[in-house]
Design a binder for these strands. Sequence first.
DNA 1: AAAGCCGTTTGACCGAGATCAAGCCGCGGA
DNA 2: TCCGCGGCTTGATCTCGGTCAAACGGCTTT
Lengths: 237, 237
Amino acid sequence: MKIKVNPFDELRSAYLFAQTSDAQLTALTRAMHEVKLVAGDSLFTHGQPADRFFLVRSGQIKLFRVSPEGQEKIIEIIQPSQTFAEAVMFMGTQARYPVNAQAVTDSRLYAFDQKQFLAILAESTEVCLGLLASMSRRLHILVNQIESLTLQNATYRLVMYLLDQAPKETGEHSEIDLTTPKNVIASKLAIQPETFSRILAKLKRRGLIEVQGNHISLRDLRGLRDLAYTSTPDDAA
Amino acid sequence: MKIKVNPFDELRSAYLFAQTSDAQLTALTRAMHEVKLVAGDSLFTHGQPADRFFLVRSGQIKLFRVSPEGQEKIIEIIQPSQTFAEAVMFMGTQARYPVNAQAVTDSRLYAFDQKQFLAILAESTEVCLGLLASMSRRLHILVNQIESLTLQNATYRLVMYLLDQAPKETGEHSEIDLTTPKNVIASKLAIQPETFSRILAKLKRRGLIEVQGNHISLRDLRGLRDLAYTSTPDDAA
DNA sequence: AAAGCCGTTTGACCGAGATCAAGCCGCGGA
DNA sequence: TCCGCGGCTTGATCTCGGTCAAACGGCTTT
């Protein structure tokens, strides 16, 4: 027994295209091409002219900025079924990518031509509204990031990340696997790898989590949540 | 001699409405009402249901988050002719404001009804594209904020703020007036008022600026730019 | 003119997290 | 099986910026 697969299902799995009609997707696919990257490959760099945006089919892409001293700060890690850089398509005359994009793992993407995309937008209000919604969510996420960078400490950010990774079942206990190298997560949370490691060790000492490589057991979800909101800097075992 | 003023000029001064037709603006104004705030008045709070967005006609509105401890972090200070909270209109079912909004000084605003606005969007691609462009810019600004919060120090942020306030003439010397209380600027830059004051004092000691209350003379633009990019923490007079 | 008040400045101290520097461990290649 | 590399951990130390506290100065109020 064979399951029938709509060729557009993969595109529609992306928020951005969820509401787009077959006809429009057909038009879009004409100016779409496939991109394959191996881990470490750069896709585009900060300041480079932006003439296309992307949908991740598999793998992970990190969007980041680099400081003059070479420090890397990851703004976002793009997962399969997510699009990115679509917001840049509206920066008007000679748009430029505001960040660097690089593959964390081997990845397959679709690239969409800016002109083609703008043409579709111009004739479809639904696509427009979908895009507005997706940008609105992203805006909100960035505001939350700014809040936690400025009003919360490193432990809070890390704990929130862990809780966010956990499935939202209601138990007091949960298991997660880090799908991303620890140093990459650290950069996303704006923490040094050493500090990241130390915070994990602290949580372990307190019996809140257990760590075996990339696998982490959250032993006490309530305790973790409490910690995040009170954030005792105290370190004693 | 009297200058003829289009009643919509004020609206069109906002990026968002720059391309909107008279007919659409007419429709919009039907569901628009005026709002007056005195300094310190709250307009809306974080988490409150969002059913309208705003255009600042005069005054200043700060958008901010508050930490559990009561610390305030200003995300943005909205100036006359700028709109805000329009992005929230797309957060779907039961949108909520993601920040608090409060008047820094006495202010006059226009408030626009969400439904009316969405109706106009649905029938005008130009307005849609204008909105996309404006959200795209805001997105970019937030990314830049995240970068400077994570990859740059307080001195960098403050110097960049000063340089940003200065008119872009090419001289080596420039005068600026802070239109916003120093503690508000400090919060926007994620710096404590004490530190803000100390950094200004340091810049003064080095002969880069002169300060008289809210008036600041930038005596050495090149020096300031250099400082921002090298950012010697060194403090000696 | 004195008294508050509020935003700002200055001083002394502290601490979260960065930096520098070793070790450790798991994994792939020879 | 051993080696070597890269990511992770742990320890020692440093520092930027925060915190607490007090004084200052320009206002408005009485």
